[in-house]
Structures are given as structure tokens and as C-alpha cells.
Design a protein around this nucleic acid. Structure first.
Lengths: 214, 214
DNA sequence: CAATTACGCTACTCCTCAGTAGCGTAATTG
DNA sequence: CAATTACGCTACTGAGGAGTAGCGTAATTG
């Protein structure tokens, strides 16, 4: 072992009661945030630790003292995303539409613009590494879609949506993320608020309230 | 100029009336097809011309005699996809549902499985090269979504769908491709026929026939 | 204070991959 | 036949990027 501090559960190193200069953990969040920004901006293969080092003002060797490989650092960045605050307490505006827009307008991860870019980048990065793909799915994509799923379920419980639409929910919970990622990646039109409003009013809500399943 | 044969409009070299051994064009389609398979299988950065050469039984130098750069070969591969046969003559099964499923079940590009993999790979590759992104959008993604769009338009013309749903069509035409790409990339569940049937019956048709826009 | 360990820095190794050079051979034209 | 040009092959150059070594310095503990 080169380092005296053992690896951490969270992917970084554990602080211990050692003599000697301690790890400067204060910059870890900034490092992981920059890693996310890079994943949002360019494909996995062109995210370099040199770039992370430069943008954070740390030395590349310092990054490698904290994370053993590029994948471990990116994995930690993915885990740092965490769950959306809406998962802890579902928005409750009084209508399903208002709730959906509350999730869309959430300030989480720096606001809609950055969040959408990060999500699209992660979806693309999932094709480059099976390891990262699992983490992205289990720790980011699935929990996020789950918020939409729970909003739909609750709308049924409240009688806002007929019960026989329940079978549509699993697929419907993916529609907003799927359309958002496509918009972000195709570079044709911006994924702005109007886009999401049209999506909610023109697709999601009609699909829930539309004719019963065949 | 190293080669005596000038570049082609289609991205390869023009056959001319030269003395000497002529280009063997018979393997061009196989080369572009393998390039597409590789783009379907791995990210752009890990598609190597060495792999194309090995898998096609050609020498890498031969590939470079035909296409000047990796991007030109991939561009030619993208252009070789062409338009879906359904764009030339829309399926007409008698119902919108049957028409949508006809597009989904199309044998185009080797059948649904390969076609979906290729589309998902191209969508991801679009993030790696702005040049390729334009070609993918203009020559593959947009024409494909246009088939769905025209089916929806025709269903309105025929009275199968109320006229006031027309505004939903542009977004709705992206739903099937978007959901398909997400399924293929997330690696969670297969994008099999059941998936598309659920998508059509549970999302697309209800979204078209659902309550009028707010 | 001494010992210890992290930091930034420079420089390095190793590997992959785009693209090229040169050669001997195969397939054409005239 | 000679001339020409594509082919496969091997070998190479050059760039980029993961990961490491070693040094001088900074920040801790005791």
C-alpha cells in the first residue's frame, strides 16, 4: 500500500487518526461536481483526469491518492448525485400537472439545465462501462423515474386518474426522462420549459387520461 | 494525391477508366454494414478501423484507400442506412395501431433487433462528433420519426383521430424512438415486441385519443 | 523539535489507435 | 507483353491519456 489511509465505503479514503498531514476532503465535492460536468459535456472516453485536475486546481497525482482509477472517481461522482429531494417528500401542489412541473422545475443539481445535461451524459456514459451503467441505473436513473411513478400512483389513489390506468404507469414514468435525454443528445432543439410543458400537457396527461387500454 | 481515383459524392472513390487494377467495390456494403454493427455495439471512440478491417477481412490500408479518415468511413456508413421502406410507401393495415406495429416489425436493417441496436448506437455516437451528429439527425433519425409523424397525420385525415390532437404529433412522433433508445441503452429490460406493444397501447394511442389539450 | 503523511509539480512508462510507408503480388488496360 | 493501380501485409510515427515515480514542500501528531 502506498497510502496509509484505507479506502472508504463512499469511494474515497477514510480519515484516520494518523500522524502527518491529513487529506483535504473539503475539495472532494468540487472534484466530483467537476467530474459530473465533464460527463455532461463530453463522452466518457474523453473525460480525462487531467481535465478534472486542471478544472479543480488539484494535481492529478492528488486525485489518484484519493481514487484508485478513473472509474472509481466517476463512480463516486455518480454516487454523489444521490436521490432527488422530491423522492424524500413528493411535491403536492394539488394537481398531478403541478406536481410534474414541480419535479421538472426542481433546483436539484443546480437547476433544470445542468440536471438535464448531467442525466443525458450519464445515459450516454452507461454505454461505455458496464460498471458505471449499473451505478447510473440503480442510483440515479431508477430513483428519478420512481418519483414520476409515485406521482402517478398517488394521482390514482386520490381519484384524479381512473384506477384502470395503473398498468400504464411503469412505462409512462420513463417518458419524460427518455424524451429529455433524446432532446439533449440530438442537439436539434433545446429542452426548455416549453418542451416539458408540451410533453406533460400533450403526451403524459393525455396518455394517463386517454381511452382505456385495449 | 496518392490515389488516381478521385473522391466520390457518396464518400468513397469514383470508378474511372484507368489502366491498372480497379477498386473492388463489391465489399463496400459489407464494410459499411460492419461499421454500423460496431457503432451499435460500442461507443464511437472504441470503434477502430483495425476492428473494421479484421471483421471484414480487408486490410486497414485498403480502407484508407477508400475513405480518407475514420469519420468519413463512419459518415458513409451512416448514409448507407438510408430511409426506411415505410417512408416510400406508408404501411396501410386499416388501423393506426396496425400501421405502427408494421413499422416496429419492419425487416428493415436486418430486422427489429439490429435496427434498434443501430439506432441506439447512432444516438449515442451523435454526442461524440458534431459532424456525425448532423448526418445522423438529418439522414436517419429525422426521416425515421417522420414515418410515425405521417402515420399520425393520416389517421387524423381518415377521421380515426380527432383533428384537435394535431398539435401533439411532433412530440408524439419522437416517443417510440426515444423510449426505444432508452431501453436499449439502460440495459435493464430488453426492447422486445411486448415492450413496443405496451408502448403503443398504453402510451401512444391513449395520448392521441386522450382528453383534449388543456 | 522529529516523524509522518498529503500536497503540487515534473517527468516518466505503457498502451491504444489514427493514419502512413514500403513492399511484393494481383488484376486490369492497351 | 509493359504499364498501371489496387490489394494484403508488416512495420512504423505521433498523439492522447491512464497511471506512476520521485522530489521538495506543507500540515499535521506527539
Amino acid at each position: 500500500m502506498t497510502s496509509a489511509t484505507p479506502p472508504d465505503i463512499l469511494g474515497a479514503r477514510q480519515a484516520g487518526a494518523h500522524p502527518g498531514r491529513p487529506y483535504d476532503r473539503s475539495s472532494d465535492p468540487a472534484i466530483l461536481s467537476v467530474a459530473l460536468d465533464l460527463l455532461a459535456d463530453r463522452p466518457y472516453e474523453r473525460v480525462t483526469l487531467d481535465a478534472v485536475a486542471t478544472l479543480t486546481g488539484r494535481a492529478k497525482t492528488t486525485l489518484y491518492r484519493r481514487w484508485a482509477t478513473k472509474d472509481e472517481l466517476l463512480l463516486a461522482a455518480i454516487r454523489s448525485v444521490g436521490h432527488p429531494p422530491e423522492a424524500a417528500s413528493l411535491p403536492d401542489s394539488g394537481s398531478l400537472r403541478g406536481d410534474l412541473l414541480a419535479v421538472i422545475d426542481s433546483p436539484w443539481l443546480g437547476g433544470a439545465e445542468r440536471r438535464l445535461a448531467v442525466f443525458a451524459g450519464l445515459a450516454s456514459a452507461a454505454r461505455s462501462s458496464e460498471l458505471l451503467a449499473q451505478a447510473i441505473r440503480l442510483e440515479v436513473a431508477d430513483p428519478y423515474a420512481d418519483v414520476y411513478r409515485r406521482l402517478f400512483e398517488r394521482a390514482i389513489e386520490r381519484g384524479e386518474v381512473p384506477r384502470d390506468r395503473r398498468a400504464r404507469i411503469p412505462l409512462l414514468a420513463e417518458v419524460i426522462p427518455a424524451m429529455s435525454d433524446r432532446r439533449m443528445s440530438s442537439g436539434t432543439a433545446p429542452a426548455d420549459r416549453d418542451f416539458f410543458v408540451s410533453l406533460v400537457d400533450g403526451i403524459v396527461l393525455p396518455a394517463l387520461l386517454g381511452v382505456p387500454a385495449a
